[in-house]
Lab assay of single mutants.
Amino acid sequence: MALNTPQITPTKKITVRAIGEELPRGDYQRCPQCDMLFSLPEINSHQSAYCPRCQAKIRDGRDWSLTRLAAMAFTMLLLMPFAWGEPLLHIWLLGIRIDANVMQGIWQMTKQGDAITGSMVFFCVIGAPLILVTSIAYLWFGNRLGMNLRPVLLMLERLKEWVMLDIYLVGIGVASIKVQDYAHIQAGVGLFSFVALVILTTVTLSHLNVEELWERFYPQRPATRRDEKLRVCLGCHFTGYPDQRGRCPRCHIPLRLRRRHSLQKCWAALLASIVLLLPANLLPISIIYLNGGRQEDTILSGIMSLASSNIAVAGIVFIASILVPFTKVIVMFTLLLSIHFKCQQGLRTRILLLRMVTWIGRWSMLDLFVISLTMSLINRDQILAFTMGPAAFYFGAAVILTILAVEWLDSRLLWDAHESGNARFDD
């Protein structure tokens, strides 16, 4: 018995066209964080690309023209004298008006014999932002004059995390709450300039795509075929072959399989920071003279006294001054041990922890910024005066060393310790 099946006739004509040209192939790229070699397709503007294995951002879609970056830099340069030299806060102490600005706080630190601690604050609040705007201006002028731009481009990517104007702005709020127990506070004209400078700096850093600047100024022929001998440069993120001198053909720094002496430098910085954190938390970090009496505060006791007036601000200072430094030390110690013992479990967790400490590390400088600003506000000789204690130097040095330890660690070593050939990683 035959089955009668109805015929289905399409209502619209289906047209099949042959592909007349070869589909576009992607360029081969190595991930600078996990060293995976993959094919990167062509990316349009405002599109980002991520590593298929570790999800690290390979290409950032946010990109401004150099002219727009230069305009932002010149605007920031105009704001800087007002943000640093004009009063941020006014207080009335014992019937006398006192003005506080950024430069005055750094000068008070240096004047009291601790120039190293003052230079830490100076670099993060004044030096690094000033280098940022002058570097962008150098790129703008240098591109037109045919100057060598490689050193500036190499420095810009590392400079971003040292620009800490946003953290200093939080420190202004913390210092205001600490001082309000002794005097009446009012915002100064410099505060508005400083807030504007923070906003412009944040926007500029978020749109400063150094890798795209490398592509514009020093374009290189990408690798179009897969080759395990391809290496990625950690300076400019170019994937290719080393030249005859073993250097990256684009930025001219040595092109090595792994960062040289990464573990040794990381261990040295980490152990030194552990040693410095002990006096930083045991010795007094601030000293207040009130009517001839002397009151010393460690980091913890200062947080407890701050909690009596504002528990939320005390929580912020606790996280930045105690929780973050010790968390960074514990995480980095764990990561280094996992590399030495070739741990194969929990790779995803370790990668996330490394990215976390990379982002939060700079916030530990908050305590030094609060001390710097408070020193310029309260300084009335023996009637009422505020000065920093010996722990300030140890704390600042420990924070900087932990930042350097994270920067010096080559994250690809975590993958080397893991089993080879993993296309995915999980716990």
Rank of each mutant, 00 (worst) to 15 (best):
S338R: 13
L278M: 12
S176L: 06
E22G: 08
L154A: 03
G146I: 01
Q112Y: 05
G26P: 11
D181N: 02
W162N: 01
K12W: 09
E419I: 12
N143G: 14
K178F: 00
F318G: 08
I253C: 03
T11W: 13
I299P: 05
A312Y: 13
I322N: 13
L413D: 06
M72A: 07
Q55A: 13
M120Q: 04
H90A: 13
R412S: 02
D99Q: 12
R362F: 02
L352Q: 09
A417E: 10
A83S: 07
A18C: 13
D427K: 15
D367P: 00
V133C: 04
L132I: 03
V317Q: 00
Q220V: 09
G118E: 13
S338V: 15
T202A: 10
F123T: 01
S309K: 02
P219R: 12
T224F: 07
S119Y: 02
K328V: 00
S321R: 01
V232H: 08
L191M: 09
S301W: 15
R97C: 08
R250K: 08
Q112I: 06
A423I: 07
W84N: 15
N143H: 14
Q112K: 05
I285L: 07
P222L: 07
G146A: 04
A397Q: 02
T349W: 13
G315A: 13
V370P: 01
V399N: 05
R380Y: 06
D410H: 00
R380H: 02
D27E: 10
L79P: 04
L414Y: 07
G396K: 00
L37F: 12
R245V: 04
R53L: 10
C124I: 04
M365T: 03
L165Y: 05
S305E: 05
T334N: 11
H237M: 08
K12T: 09
F425M: 12
D99E: 09
A2N: 13
V121N: 05
D227C: 09
R30S: 09
A307E: 09
S65N: 13
G292S: 08
I131W: 01
V324A: 08
E22F: 11
Q345A: 13
L3R: 12
S309I: 01
V210F: 12
Q382R: 08
R294S: 03
D35C: 07
A71V: 15
F386M: 02
V203R: 08
W64G: 14
S308E: 06
I58S: 09
V174Y: 00
F395N: 02
G113W: 06
S65A: 12
F38K: 03
D426F: 12
I106G: 03
I299T: 12
L306M: 08
H184I: 07
M155Q: 14
I319Y: 04
Q382P: 14
T11V: 07
K229A: 06
R225D: 10
H184M: 15
R258W: 03
F82S: 06
V406A: 07
C31Q: 00
V16A: 07
M103I: 04
L139W: 03
Q220G: 04
L40D: 05
E161W: 03
N310A: 05
L404A: 04
I351A: 13
A272T: 08
V195F: 10
V179I: 03
K328Y: 00
A56N: 15
Q104F: 06
S305D: 01
I58R: 12
I14S: 10
F74P: 12
Q344Y: 12
N148T: 03
E296M: 07
W92I: 05
L88G: 04
N379H: 02
F238G: 07
L278R: 02
L94M: 05
V163W: 02
V313Q: 00
V406W: 07
G246T: 04
I311G: 09
I383H: 02
I299Q: 13
I136D: 01
I177D: 04
G346L: 14
G293R: 13
F217E: 02
F393M: 10
L94H: 01
L353H: 13
